[in-house]
Write a protein that binds this DNA or RNA. Structure first.
Length: 349
DNA sequence: AAGTCGGGGTC
DNA sequence: GACCCAGACTT
């Protein structure tokens, strides 16, 4: 049996029963693929159900408010995926009568759809001969064929796409592509792969040369930037004793684009209440200030893949009259970063 | 070619 | 703490 025959056979005997398995509706497969980019199946699955329920068709998704999409996406990370999802849905509805593209080439034009996702949709839904290359495939191929070209270089990306295309199973690309990914996720795992019981073990170069632990090769390491966030949480009441606060939408570049947060003061280093009061009086124009209290004794360190956010939440109480204020009871409706959502859970407004 | 974009699981 | 996850986009 060839490499691809063994993968296919292993898949048919070992595949998990996932919600999007056995489906060839390109809308649903696309949705699942976007959700699963850089995301584990266990983390993404609940989001897949939420989105299918809220937006049964691509028309529903295209007609939704971005706010609603981001709210449903909250907690999944990489929020550009959600924004691009909306853009792509509108593209299909407005420019293609709601008919989802049916070829690799056409799929690539959709915002948020790159080589991997276009290959996945076109092969799974239409059995097109396009090999997927995701993190699983890099691992399986680099080990089995003993390839030590770094996978995160232009050369490596091109090399592995070509290799994947060469070994692609010819007449069942749908199951084969899902099979090699499933094989990487369950059998040929990053750590402690199950080589003792592997259908490819007698011809795996990495196993023979004891290179399982060093393959695949990846170069460079993301350096982490430390930032100091001070969230100024204003709280005021009206005559009926309803509580109000304020959120602002993040714009421009950087993290959490279009998500909401409390007024933010970013500092060069950790700051204290004295400094916060100066900032509040100068920059935030909150007339009626009565008290500033620190919510968390020690900074909360929120870790992103390339930023560590040392965060203090300052509760600013007073008799304010700001324009865009919101009832604290309505906070739940806004899409916010996990850092903010966690604060809202622990703080009693 | 290198940098940016999240949050969570695993070892 | 380091690495990874059904990657794509921007600079």
């Amino acid at each position: 049996m060839s490499f691809s025959d063994k993968i296919l056979k292993w898949y048919q005997e070992n595949k998990r029963d996932l919600p999007w398995r056995g489906i060839r509706d390109p809308y649903k497969i696309w949705l699942s693929e976007i959700i699963l980019q850089q995301t584990r199946v266990a983390q993404g699955t609940p989001y897949y159900f939420k989105f299918i329920e809220a937006f049964p068709t691509i028309n529903d998704l295209a007609n939704a408010k971005e706010e609603q999409i981001l709210k449903l996406w909250q907690g999944l990370g990489y929020y550009s995926r959600a924004r691009n999802l909306h853009t792509a849905a509108k593209m299909v509805v407005n420019e293609n009568d709601g008919i989802f593209p049916g070829t690799y080439k056409e799929l690539l034009k959709l915002k948020g759809v790159g080589d991997y996702t276009a290959s996945a949709i076109s092969s799974i839904c239409f059995n097109e001969r396009q090999a997927v290359v995701d993190g699983n495939v890099y691992r399986v191929l680099s080990r089995y064929f003993g390839i030590d070209i770094p996978i995160n270089t232009t050369k490596g990306i091109k090399y592995f796409k070509n290799l994947a295309q060469e070994v692609l199973h010819s007449n069942n690309t749908s199951d084969y592509n899902q099979g090699i990914m499933e094989f990487g996720a369950i059998q040929c795992t990053p750590k402690n792969p199950n080589c003792e019981k592997c259908p490819l073990s007698n011809s795996c170069v990495a196993l023979e040369k004891d290179k399982i632990k060093t393959l695949p090769v990846k170069v460079g390491k993301t350096k982490v930037r430390t930032r100091y966030f001070n969230y100024l949480v204003p709280i005021t009441r009206n005559l009926e004793n309803d509580k109000f606060t304020q959120l602002r939408q993040r714009k421009g570049k950087g993290i959490w684009q279009n998500l909401w947060e409390f007024p933010l003061w970013e500092s060069e280093k950790e700051i204290d209440a004295i400094e916060v009061e100066k900032v509040v009086l100068k920059k935030f124009k909150l007339d009626g200030l009565s008290e500033i209290t620190l919510h968390n004794e020690n900074p909360i360190v929120h870790k992103l893949s390339h930023q560590h956010l040392h965060t203090k939440f300052w509760i600013i109480e007073g008799d304010f009259k700001f324009k865009k204020c919101i009832k604290t009871l309505d906070l739940i409706n806004y899409p916010v970063p996990v850092l903010i959502a966690d604060f809202m859970k622990t703080f009693k407004f």
